[in-house]
């Protein structure tokens, strides 16, 4: 049973920002993650400030200067159905389609997907873990089959989002509203790993709201994809995933952005893979070298060693598919 709370509808983004100042206040959008967390006692909220009624935060529209604006409240189902996204930003369409289940894609928002809390079962369960203010990480020496092989530091969560790696590969930025003027940051610097901060996953401050996602104009030669491997066909998070955004000119990779999901506490940009393919044609040899480079430095825990060959497998498969 969800413990009681007060529910308030914000009249505007500015009103939402103001209301978030109340003690124990949390932001509510699609609610698919928030309500689960409250029910499971992952954290508490005395007051929910809902922005779900704000139409200005919904929808997908071209930006005059080129590119696309996606309101934070746009649902995954809407993203998946959008023609422009399917044609020009394929990685995002594939990522949104890979999220959860149809019911959750109808309700869950893309902004919420970027701000969701980790799925580590110790964090979600009744374990007083480091990320919840406890004194140790249960995953480090426990049941860590779903945990990080890159970027772990005292805490070994993996970032749960599918859309985040796709959006980072596509060069997205996000707008954040707060008490002062809104700010726009590259999505790649929105996420924070445990080495810097252990109790939250993003740079959002208490009174800040992610309001929109901005995609740059898609170059005609851009090819992108998102591939996710999970333990079950639907309603499941990534064991490992890979987002690719490659600019391919004259048969060669002119620019590459490669981001992994499911293997690190933040969406994990893989510069080694990018370097291994930039300036080259995606021949089997180049791809094999890239896959090897991609897993270099991986530090598996006791039970997640499979993620290393798995990651190699999807790097290979995904690069060959875009060749």
């Amino acid at each position: 049973m969800v413990p009681g709370f007060t529910y308030v509808r914000a009249k505007s983004v500015a009103d939402g920002v103001r209301q978030l100042a109340a003690p124990g206040a949390k932001l509510h959008a699609g609610g698919t993650d928030l309500l689960g967390c409250l029910r499971d006692g992952v954290f508490k909220a005395d007051r929910l400030i809902s922005v779900s009624g704000l139409k200005e935060l919904r929808g997908i529209a071209p930006v005059p200067a080129g590119g696309l604006r996606i309101g934070a409240l746009t649902t995954h189902a809407q993203v998946v159905a959008d023609k422009t996204i399917n044609e020009r930003y394929r990685a995002l369409a594939q990522a949104s389609a890979a999220v959860a289940s149809p019911q959750l894609r109808n309700q869950g928002t893309i902004g919420g997907n970027l701000c969701q809390r980790p799925r580590c079962w110790y964090f979600r369960g009744d374990f007083h873990c480091l990320r919840k203010g406890g004194d140790h990480c249960y995953a480090e020496g426990g049941e860590n089959q779903y945990h990080a092989v890159f970027g772990g530091h005292k805490c070994y969560i993996v970032h749960p989002s599918d859309t985040a790696p796709a959006l980072i590969a596509l060069g997205a930025r996000v707008r954040i509203a707060g008490p002062g003027a809104s700010r726009v940051v590259p999505l790649a610097s929105f996420f924070v790993g445990p080495a810097k901060m252990i109790t939250k996953e993003t740079i959002l401050e208490k009174r800040e709201i992610l309001t929109e996602i901005l995609l740059p104009a898609a170059e005609p030669d851009l090819r992108s994809s998102y591939r996710k491997v999970r333990a079950r066909g639907s309603f499941d998070f990534a064991l490992a995933g890979i987002a690719l955004a490659l600019l391919i000119k004259d048969g060669k990779v002119a620019r590459a952005r490669v981001v992994f999901s499911g293997v690190a506490p933040v969406p994990w940009r893989s510069e080694p893979v990018e370097q291994a393919i930039t300036g080259k044609a995606l021949t089997p040899d180049v791809v094999a070298a890239a896959a090897e480079a991609g897993v270099k430095g991986a530090e598996p825990l006791e039970k997640n060693g499979y993620k290393v060959p798995l990651l190699e497998g999807i790097i290979t498969e995904s690069l060959l598919a875009l060749a």
Binding site: R119, R124, G125, R232, G233
Partner: peptide, 16 residues
Amino acid sequence: KMVNRNWHDYKIPTAM
């Protein structure tokens, strides 16, 4: 303790 006592972590097959 059981770490996967919920529908997400205990994986019943889906239609997929």
